[in-house]
Design a protein around this nucleic acid. Sequence first.
DNA 1: AAGCCGGGGGA
DNA 2: TCCCCAGGCTT
Length: 335
Amino acid sequence: MVPSASPVLDLTETHEAVLSWYDAHARDLPWRRPRTSAWAVLVSEVMLQQTPVSRVEPAWRAWLARWPTPADLAAAPTAEVLRAWDRLGYPRRALRLRECAAVIRDRHGGRVPQSEEELRELPGIGTYTAAAVAAFAYGRRAVVLDTNVRRVLGRALAGQALPPPALGRDERDRAAAYLPADAARSVRWNVGVMELGALVCTARAPRCEACPLRGSCAWLRAGRPADPHAATRRRQAWHGTDRQARGRIMAVLRARDGWHAEADLLRAGAGGADPAALTDPTQPARALASLVSDGLAVVRYDQQHAGGEHERGTSGVQGAGECNHDGAAPTYRLP
DNA sequence: AAGCCGGGGGA
DNA sequence: TCCCCAGGCTT
């Protein structure tokens, strides 16, 4: 039932090449060490979603030292979780990780579930992370397809410079066809291919001369043809985006405890300039409102002429300055 | 399927 | 400067 998945390379030879290369060249990453808890592995995988290893390593150590178990993290104040997340990026991941910890505590007896299906149900755990935790924390056989594995298999097996933008069924079937049948071996294969993608078969300047698959790689044999989707592959903009504005506002909120004046945050969101001078003057307010909507900030409406003492109410839902608390000045802080 | 969600460091 | 990084969620 998997017609397109018949191996093009010799399975045993390919496995052996990658496994022995991994044995000789693997990095000594802390979450790969024996006796690393399943929770610690899960935390590493969430942090590694779109954040490079070099930046995750110190953050992971500090995080696990502070919150060694799901119950520890689930009990932590949101503001402290967001501060500990610091600049890893995509702070919504930190919120989901804490939700994930609470679900594990409340519905799984405090233990990280073992099956991909159960893992997939947890907040912030998608197809990749569920497979990675099942494989790396529990030694299970799982198809682990991250950006590294996709690139290595795409090159070696399909002769593609880079994997297509969307992960298709054919690609998944092909990866499954190459997964070693033995569970322990499949785990080493998964981490080995991933490591190969990170260290040798890199996106930018692959070092094919150092690759254990150089003798059989379809892409290398074809003369390393260019990426056919290069034109359609558009990188996300950064400068001048709402994401940049959100990031700047979050940095200010993390830097100091307590309530922040709206004007200060809007100015921060504008990069220190007058928000009115921006191409899109509404951007800082939109960014701030979206942070509140995402649960990354909370707003409170103070009476302007009551010495800031009288609290008119707080909300995790209202947008920046968009409701009718007349005479009330909105202030914000971390949740 | 497409868009959105951070931030930094290496090339 | 540009580009990529152990993705996930929403629409």
